[in-house]
């Protein structure tokens, strides 16, 4: 009896959620680019779950052998700057690769010229800091 009530409540919540989403989606049905929006919506899920996740999971698996490379494992000292590099690239790639230059220029009156160098410096700082931390850690472990 109680399980049925819980199941009923679950069902109601789920239906309400789907109804709200369906109602929101109904407003873009007439939009000539509605299919492209849907493609981006589904593409975002596929891009994350079936492309990005497997890539980083496999890359991390491949990096596993670093774990036993030295008395102090360098694994996390590689992971952290690599993740910082990937995160900043994925979020800020338009400036870094000069994507959307005309709209950027119209909006700001500037070019995207400095971003690539700035990002490379940021990446350099991430790796250098991590390397320095690793060196200090290894030195301490040896003593």
């Amino acid at each position: 009896m109680r399980a049925n009530a819980i199941n009923g409540a679950h069902l109601l919540i789920l239906l309400a959620s789907l109804a709200l989403a369906g109602y929101a989606a109904s407003f873009v049905l007439g939009d000539p680019l509605a299919l492209i929006m849907l493609a981006w919506f589904l593409g975002a899920v596929i891009g994350h779950d079936l492309i990005l996740f497997p890539i980083y999971a496999l890359a991390d698996r491949a990096a596993d052998r670093l774990a036993n490379l030295a008395p102090v494992s360098p694994l996390n000292y590689v992971r952290v700057p690599v993740l910082g590099t990937a995160l900043t690239f994925v979020l800020f790639f338009p400036g870094i690769i000069g994507q959307g230059a005309p709209t950027y220029r119209a909006a700001t009156g500037q070019t995207q010229e400095p971003y690539l160098v700035r990002w490379l410096i940021l990446v350099g700082v991430l790796f250098a800091t991590s390397g320095l931390c690793y060196a200090i850690r290894s030195y301490r472990a040896r003593r």
């Binding site: 959620s17 989403a21 929101a24 680019l33 492209i36 994507q99 959307g100």
Partner: peptide, 24 residues
């Protein structure tokens, strides 16, 4: 970043996309 790679209206997509998300 003023990159309109997606081609559709940002406002429309971001607003209704938000409501789809709110439902979920």
């Amino acid at each position: 970043q003023y990159d309109y790679l997606f081609g559709f209206s940002f406002y429309t997509a971001h607003y209704y996309g938000a409501w789809v998300f709110i439902g979920g």
